[in-house]
Design a protein around this nucleic acid. Structure first.
Length: 498
RNA sequence: GGGUCGGUAGCUCAAUCGGUAGAGCAGCGCCCUUUUAAGGCGUUGGUUCCGGGUUCGAGUCCCGGCCGACCCA
């Protein structure tokens, strides 16, 4: 009694109830009146639905549990689809098998409810593997109706806000996330097989270093200490190099307090790898190998096809090795004229604006004008893999300068699918040069100097290669997602208010 | 931050020039013992995102706001 009263008051505090929800609540009560607890307990299964389907053998008894996603009512016999993330299994229900009482309970079930079934495997006329139920249990009642069965959940906002509904209603969305999960698993296997150790370094940092980005700030009460969520793990992974770890990686979240776009979520997943005694070229080889491995494992091919909603191929990315490697200056020359670097700053601005039709705001430094040309005319137009090497040092303060041209750094920037996918460096391990470079950059980028990191370098860091890989962007490339929000389970949105 | 587009039943979508808000699915009732987007007959369901304004009359036009998508910065 008391329970029921509490339930009513819970219901009453929520939004005005619609008829469909009210009906489901009535069924909930009706089940309880029959002595059935609609939010059941543990149910022994023969495995996930996918596993039951694999083990399926005519005549054998199996137990499966899942969500009811379809009901085909033939009068005395009923067909029900049971689903979980591993697949679908058809259940056949008939009064002869389960008894009249169970059929009364079955009438109180809805699409979206969870049940557990024990039944005999058989094939229908059309050859569909089916469990002929002899008993079933109610495992959980769903109080809200599922989306339309054919179109699924289309509303983009609802798909992000209620991803759990999206995953149930849209098979394509489920596939995308399963691919992402497989990708992350394969990255770990690949690196472990090659002797890399996975490490965990601080996400709360007193100085947010390792990249030029706005951090999120927070506060530790007990220490009275302002802290930042990390924008990169780089400086801690390098401390581990100092500590004697020669091959390490970290695969986890970074946070950047900046704009949200098709390519940016404030929290995103990054892989960083460091290898002692390597250089950027060795890291490029490793990256090539890793991404090809992932493509083969997840997509079964090095040719990745992106399709639109109608299934037409909109883009094909060819990952066939070896991947092109070209110098930054040569690539800019290809699109902006081979004399680009002989021009004065003024001439470059003029050409970029007038001939190349780019918007050049006056605040840009000279190297930023060139970088803008690079981003618009090279990066955004390059879909097959391209390693851009020997970038200007202003762009990369943590990499080693080139021996023959100190204006350049020994790095690659890997572009695939029109976006920067992975940077790789020959890491700077000279503490004095590192301090100088950070000071040069700190002026404009408000990057504070991490003195403890410099202290670590003074203890000696072996020469090393390092790389980063944007896992979200890689997932977009491998799944054909147009937006990062389609590969992040719960992307950041403004809360909905009344 | 700026621009463009969008928000209609639980879901997917209609609604002509400003003139009674509709359909399919889901739900509910009935028929049907191998269906699979099951089928047939009937039927319920609306704060048209929110707040103002114009008008005899607003889902539609105007202003403001909220949320989202895309583009730009």
């Amino acid at each position: 009694m008391r329970n029921r009263e509490r339930e009513r008051s819970v219901a009453a505090t929520m939004e005005p109830e619609n008829e469909l929800i009210a009906q489901r609540r009535e069924k909930l009560e009706a089940l309880r009146k029959k002595g059935i607890e609609p939010f059941g307990c543990a149910f022994e299964t023969s495995g996930s639905i996918g596993e039951v389907r694999n083990k399926f053998k005519e005549g054998e008894i199996m137990r499966a549990a899942g969500r009811i996603t379809a009901h085909r009512d033939m009068g005395k016999s009923h067909f029900v689809d049971l689903r979980d993330a591993t697949g679908r299994m058809q259940i056949y229900l008939h009064e002869k098998e389960v008894g009249a009482e169970a059929m009364e309970i079955f009438k109180l079930l809805d699409l979206g409810d969870f049940i557990g079934v024990e039944g005999t495997c058989f094939l229908t006329k059309t050859g569909e593997p089916t469990l002929k139920a002899h008993k079933f249990e109610v495992l959980a009642k769903s109080l809200r109706p599922p989306p339309e069965k054919w179109h699924g959940l289309q509303d983009v906002e609802a798909r992000y806000r209620q991803r759990y509904v999206d995953l149930v209603a849209n098979e394509q969305s489920l596939e995308t996330f399963q691919k992402r999960i497989a990708m992350v698993r394969e990255v770990r296997r690949f690196l472990e097989d090659r002797g890399f150790l996975e490490v965990e370094t601080p996400m709360l940092q007193a100085v947010a270093g390792g990249a030029a980005a706005q951090p999120f700030s927070t506060h530790h009460k007990a220490l009275g200490l302002d802290l930042y969520l990390r924008i990169a793990p780089e400086l801690y992974l390098k401390r581990l190099m100092v500590g004697g770890f020669n091959k390490v990686f970290e695969l986890n979240r970074n946070f950047r307090n900046e704009g949200i776009s098709r390519k940016h979520n404030p929290e995103f997943t990054m892989l960083e790898i460091y290898q002692a005694y390597a250089n950027f070229e060795k890291m490029a080889d490793l990256m090539e190998e890793l991404i090809c491995h992932l493509a083969e494992r997840i997509c079964g091919s090095l040719k990745i096809e992106h399709r639109d909603a109608d299934g037409n191929v909109t883009r094909t990315i060819d990952l066939k090795r070896p991947w092109r490697r070209a110098r930054y200056m040569d690539l800019v020359g290809e699109v902006a004229g081979n004399d680009w670097f002989e021009l004065t700053g003024e001439e470059r601005r003029f050409r970029a604006a007038k001939e190349l039709k780019l918007e050049i705001i006056p605040q840009l430094a000279d190297f930023e004008v060139t970088q803008h040309v690079f981003e618009k005319l090279v990066e955004e137009k390059t879909f097959d893999p391209l390693f851009v090497t020997h970038c200007p040092k202003e762009l990369v303060p943590l990499a080693k300068q080139n021996k023959t041209d100190p204006a350049l750094v020994d790095v690659y920037e890997l572009i695939i699918n029109g976006v920067e996918m992975s940077p790789g460096y020959t890491e700077l391990n000279d503490p004095d040069a590192q301090r100088q470079r950070l000071l040069e950059q700190a002026g404009e980028e408000t990057q504070k100097i991490d003195e403890d990191f410099l202290l670590a370098l003074e203890h000696g860091m072996p020469p090393a290669g390092g790389l980063g890989l944007g896992i979200d962007r890689l997932a977009m490339m491998l799944t054909g997602a147009e937006s990062i929000r389609d590969v992040v389970l719960f992307p950041l949105l403004k809360p909905k208010r009344d």
